[in-house]
């Protein structure tokens, strides 16, 4: 089932991964803005999170969180230390010739207030040449707050989790504020 969970943004977010879409990130000048015919559109305020409150497969320590949404038992896996247990994040395992490359314990979130989303018609591009396209325009919010975003890169002998079998390559954690400006325009282009 296509899990399309509402709002144009979610479809657009999936479009970001489509290779035939040209993504142009340029601040629009006033003249450019004059050429944009907005059709309604929305401000989006909120957040995007991955495993903010743990996941359905693993629990860090015994307690109410050891059961999933339907009352089934989870397995225990602690992504913190025994002194400071931490719920595990999402795990993506990609099979190589021998073994698996694992992006493990992906958690955290991004919050923003006032991302804009609308469909627009742009008559000319930044060089003044005819452009003549309908675009999905994502107006970036000025600030995006990163909230304990972290992941670990590892290798594994199995696609599914095996206790302590991972060989960790690196771990990343990101906090703070990201400044963003301008618009993201999405539109299809001819593929040669």
């Amino acid at each position: 089932m296509a899990i399309l969970t509402g709002f144009r943004s979610m479809f657009v977010a999936s479009c970001l991964f489509m290779p035939s879409l040209l993504l142009a990130l340029e601040p629009l000048t006033n003249d450019d803005l004059d050429a944009v015919h907005g059709q309604g559109g929305v401000y989006l305020t909120g957040e995007f999170t991955i495993n903010k409150d743990g996941g359905p497969l693993w629990y860090a320590e015994p307690g109410p969180g050891q059961f999933d949404d339907f009352g089934g038992a989870k397995q225990q896996r602690n992504c913190g230390s025994s002194a400071n247990p931490k719920e595990c994040g999402l795990r993506v395992a990609y099979q190589l010739n021998e073994g698996w490359l694992v992006l493990d314990d992906v958690t955290g979130g991004f919050a923003f207030e006032g991302l804009t989303l609308r469909t627009s018609y742009i008559a000319t591009d930044e060089k003044g040449d005819a452009f003549d396209k309908e675009v999905v325009e994502i107006g970036l919010p000025k600030q995006v707050r990163s909230n304990e975003f972290r992941y670990t890169l590892a290798t594994s002998s199995s696609g599914t989790w095996v206790n302590n079998a991972d060989s960790r390559i690196l771990s990343v954690r990101q906090d703070g504020t990201i400044n963003m400006q301008g618009n993201l325009l999405l539109f299809p282009v001819e593929v040669p």
Binding site: F7, G40, V42, L44, G46, T49, N51, W58, G89, L90
Partner: peptide
Amino acid sequence: LVSGLVIQNANIVTNLTATPI
């Protein structure tokens, strides 16, 4: 391109409010 991909323990949330421009 990929001969096996496994995604586990996913709990992805988008919490958005749309207001008109």
